[in-house]
Design a protein around this nucleic acid. Structure first.
Length: 215
DNA sequence: TAGGCCATCTGGTCCT
DNA sequence: AGGACCAGATGGCCTA
């Protein structure tokens, strides 16, 4: 579907955005690791019960003394499973937080307007992909003009589409966001702080470049 | 209220 | 055995 651009999300992402530059994954990891347990629902299992007796009955004169590969009691196995699951959940949480941190870092280097709603994950990836592509084309053209070469004017088929590799599919340049105008489509790149307006690559659509062109 | 986005949990698979 | 990665499921939050 097409999410409306003006969605003022950026809500529960607080922990992500606090980091000025979340590239330092280690910091993030540490911080996250100590983060309070999420208020997630507890499904059928007793994962959250943890220290608590998930199942009260579990008490038994557990067989002591472990031989090497001696069969463990049900209770021990169950506890071990829970312990492993819990650790796996922590790791998975950290992994996703790292991923989000990287995504935030990526957002940080993409040209957007302060007023723009935070890019979603998929928007960020598409934007970055197309932005890189456009910059590449800019460099290409700059090289050619610098050395007085023939204007490249590479065909779109030759270059491929910036979005999904399907040559010639220029509609793919537009993400849901750009279609909705989230990134101030009317604004030219010059208006965007820190971003040089790239020379229009031959394959870019004619007309003023807009941020939305990268989406 | 429906739909989009997100965080988290979970079990499976692959790798070391 | 344990960790990384992945995809599905679930539920919360938010906006139109």
């Amino acid at each position: 579907m097409v999410p409306h651009p003006s969605r003022a999300r950026a809500v529960q992402v607080t922990h992500e955005t606090e980091q000025p530059f979340p590239g330092a994954s280690d910091v993030e990891v540490t911080r996250v690791a100590s983060a309070p347990p999420s208020p997630t629902r507890v499904r059928g299992n007793c994962a959250e019960a943890e220290g608590g007796n998930c199942r009260g009955a579990a008490r038994k004169p557990r067989a002591r003394r472990g031989g090497r590969s001696r069969p463990k009691s049900e209770l021990a196995l169950s506890k071990q499973r829970r312990s492993r699951r819990k650790k796996a959940n922590d790791r998975e949480r950290n992994r996703m937080h790292n991923l989000n941190s990287a995504l935030d870092a990526l957002r940080g280097v993409l040209p957007t307007f302060p007023d723009d709603a935070k890019l979603t994950k998929i928007e960020t990836l598409r934007f970055a992909h197309n932005y890189i592509w456009a910059l590449t084309q800019t460099l290409r053209i700059a090289d050619h003009s610098l050395y007085g070469l023939e204007p490249p004017a590479p065909s779109c088929e030759e270059l491929g589409s910036p979005d999904d590799g399907s040559p010639g599919d220029w509609s793919s340049l537009y993400s849901p966001v750009s279609q909705a105008g989230s990134l101030s489509p009317a604004a030219s790149l010059e208006e965007c702080p820190g971003l040089q307006a790239p020379a229009s690559p031959a394959c870019l659509r004619p007309g003023a470049l807009a941020l939305s062109d990268f989406l």
